[in-house]
Amino acid sequence: MSLKRIIQTIATVIQNAYIPAIFAGGIYQGFLKRACTPILNCWGCPLALFSCPMGALQHFIGLGLIPFYTVGFFGTVGMLVGRMTCGWICPFGFFQDLLYKIRSFKAELPKPFSYFKYVVLIGVAGVIAYLTAEPWFCKLCPDGSLIAGIPLVLADRTGDLRALVGWHYYMKISILLAIIVLSVAMKRFFCRTFCPVGAIYSIFNRFSLLKLQIDDKRCIRCESCQTKCPMHVPIYRSPSNIDCIRCLDCVKVCPTNAIKHKVR
């Protein structure tokens, strides 16, 4: 197992490590929940220790406040490492990586889909959340359905939650189902098309401290890096691509060592 996989596993466990929930039910609401994890991980998961920055952002937007705390938080992480957290510690990204490993018929995602995540960010998590004062992205988020919605409803002992299941819950399940299937067929389908956290970090890819650099004299344009890339980024052409998640797999795989990562 590569270093990346080990860190992904550990990060997934740490972010969702509230063991007592398994016996006691309910969700953790202690001190750590006031902090955000730097990536998409639903705070509603019974095991989750931290809250999700997207949830926090929408919460403030819904209240009509300017979310200084979350914006500053995104800004800091983004300026330091760009989208690196997506590649190394995102549990839902890890889940999609594993799904893509399944040997099956694979397809390529058309490029324009990459820009749809900005529509999600501004439209759903911004405008709609502001107008309705509800966190609409969270209501549709497949990560939320997977690690919060399903386990909570299944483990529900009182029957209160189950009584609430309605069209909204059905919709969440269908979205989750569709996204899982499409991530078997395409590399990180959700990250590339929908993820608003990724959309925010992607803006910083161009300016972040951690950078990738291509040595044009060495590169033979074999595209091994793109094939290996979990986001299918043509890194040899655009080292600060919005979709680059700094997983650094390409650095290892390049036969000519043309890709270098550096901190400027």
Partner: peptide, 17 residues
Amino acid sequence: VIWTGVNEAFWGLIAAW
């Protein structure tokens, strides 16, 4: 397990299946 009857979003579910 969690069935609470047919509603609008049921068709979304059918589409996903």
